[in-house]
Write a protein that binds this DNA or RNA. Structure first.
Length: 473
RNA sequence: GGCGCCUUGGCGGAGUGGUUACGCAGAGGUCUGCAAAACCUUUUACACCGGUUCAAUUCCGGUAGGCGCCUCCA
């Protein structure tokens, strides 16, 4: 398995730190609103990574945080639940959007069963964060200010470690905007908050450091450092996230997680996915090109078609989302589903001999493509070549040969849910048989009527030398 | 200003020093009771300019254009 590593800027062979186990930590959503399609694409990437590791024979442990406390979340909870006390307002808001997140994840085919989710405000998580902050403070990497606790990059550097492992920071890179926006009382520019003291009306959790009451809430970066250590141990194998998280988020995580350790490693591999562009531009609410999964399903598209759209591009290149491309992906998905549905249809006795061979080479090609830095577009090519062949031999009845497990294999890799599609109903099957009899009797009127009836139920028919083959419209 | 990435046919998108993926869309045709599907053909693809080479879309240099990060945005 080869994977591009942001840390080394190279494609590297993946070597587990421990036995055959790959531990993955993914930066999860901030649940103050519905996830947008960019978030989802990021999670589709991670899910695909996990699937690929699976078929490559690794055992995988995958953890993800849910950020359920931050400025935006707090603000939104006040707006939506003004009568509630801050903690329960926050909880109501984040419960709602956590559920929405899980529903969206499921809809786009991400396997939730293999994912350990932990909320930032979970007592176990908060405990881990506070312990880490205390330790960092004790060792001189953290200092208190009027409004909270900060991480000292200077102290980190003096201890001989490198701040800027993922991104080289130049002295000139500091923008004036950043200084002007700096509302906090920190000692130097890049220092960041580990813990923020409660302000009026904010939800807060008890915390004291050196006898001082610091009741408040955690900073964003400390979440991931503490939770990844809690859930996976340290160092772990792969840390994922969107490309925008490289700096400062992951850089700061590295600093927090390695300051108190002799081992300078947080994770072996940092894997980042590129962003989705909408009509060639960055998605933004102000640009009116900001979409959620709901916007996609409202227009009648299958969430799995969105998954396919994402898989059609390499995860390290920008994905071009547009309604035209969405339409194309939906059509492609329809075709794949129609071929998959052949497994429910009557068998012919003679199977072309090369089919087994084709199943084998398809598997191998997909395996090779995916293990080569997740080349999903290339892997999909192999899938299409196989399906083109199946469609070409107009085959009701590849069912028996599907026992090769090819559909299951494809689902394990792509998550497009081709193997578990339901059969049509018995009355529908009966209607097809009746129509076939009418056709044999050259009763075209009756035959066409029946075809129209079945069409009304969303089932299309095409006549082949082996009989009628149905597909969903 | 600093760091990095990208530019492939109508759209999307792999890949390769010589054999020109794949998907979607358009046009024409074959086949068919009709339809559908399939198949065939088709719409001068590799931003531009140099260089290396027997040969470059693929390697090197430059030009133009686009994008990302450098602000708690996946």
């Amino acid at each position: 398995m080869k994977l591009y590593n942001t840390r080394t800027r190279k494609i590297e062979a993946l070597k587990p730190l421990k036995d055959n186990l790959i531990r993955i930590y993914s930066c999860g959503p901030t649940v103050y609103d519905r996830a947008h399609i960019g978030n989802l694409s990021s999670f589709i990437f991670v899910d695909t990574l996990r699937r690929t590791l699976d078929i490559a024979g690794f055992s995988v442990k995958h953890a993800m945080n849910i950020t359920d406390v931050d400025d935006k979340t707090i603000r939104r909870s006040h707006e939506q639940y003004p009568a509630q006390n801050p903690r329960s307002a926050l909880e109501k808001l984040t419960n709602k959007y956590t559920a929405a997140f899980q529903a969206d994840m499921q809809a786009v085919g991400n396997d939730m069963d293999s994912l350990t989710l932990l909320r930032a405000t979970d007592p176990r998580a908060l405990e881990a964060m506070q312990q880490l902050i205390l330790k960092l403070h004790e060792q001189g990497f953290a200092y208190t200010a009027d409004d909270g606790v900060y991480f000292s990059i200077e102290a980190y550097r003096k201890s001989g470690k490198t701040y800027g492992q993922l991104l080289e920071l130049s002295p000139n890179s500091t923008s004036r905007a950043r200084i002007q926006n700096d509302e906090y009382d920190k000692a130097s520019l890049h220092d960041f908050a580990l813990w923020k003291k409660q302000k009026d009306g904010e939800p807060a959790w008890e915390f004291s450091l050196g006898g001082h009451d610091l009741t408040g809430r955690p900073g964003w970066h400390i979440e991931c450092s503490a939770m990844s250590r809690l859930l996976l141990g340290q160092p772990f194998d792969i840390h994922t996230g969107g490309i925008d998280l490289v700096f400062p988020h992951h850089e700061n995580e590295i600093a927090q997680s390695t300051a108190d350790e002799t081992n300078p490693l947080l994770a072996t591999v940092f894997a980042h996915n590129e962003h989705i562009l909408v009509d060639g531009k960055k998605m933004a609410k102000s640009a009116h090109n900001f979409y959620t999964l709901q916007d996609i399903t409202k227009r009648g598209y299958d969430p799995l078609a969105f998954r396919l759209l994402v898989l059609q591009a390499h995860y390290r290149s920008q994905i071009h989302f547009s309604w035209e491309n969405m339409e194309a992906a939906q059509h492609r998905l329809n075709d794949l589903q129609a071929i998959a549905d052949l497994r429910h249809q009557p068998q012919i006795s003679e199977m072309p001999g090369e089919l087994n061979h084709l199943f084998k080479t398809t598997r191998q090609e997909i395996y090779d493509a995916m293990l080569d830095d997740l080349n999903s577009p290339l892997a999909l090519t192999s899938l299409n070549k196989l399906f083109n062949y199946l469609a070409g031999i107009a085959t009701p009845g590849v069912e028996g040969r599907y026992s090769e497990g090819i559909l299951t294999f494809l689902d394990n890799v792509f998550g497009l849910q081709l193997s578990n599609r339901p059969d049509i109903s018995n009355p529908q099957k009966q209607a097809i048989v009746t129509r076939q009899k009418a056709r044999v009797a050259k009763d075209w009127k009756k035959s066409d009527e029946l075809r129209e009836q079945i069409k009304q139920q969303g089932i299309g028919l095409r006549d082949t030398p082996h009989g009628a083959v149905w597909h969903r419209l």
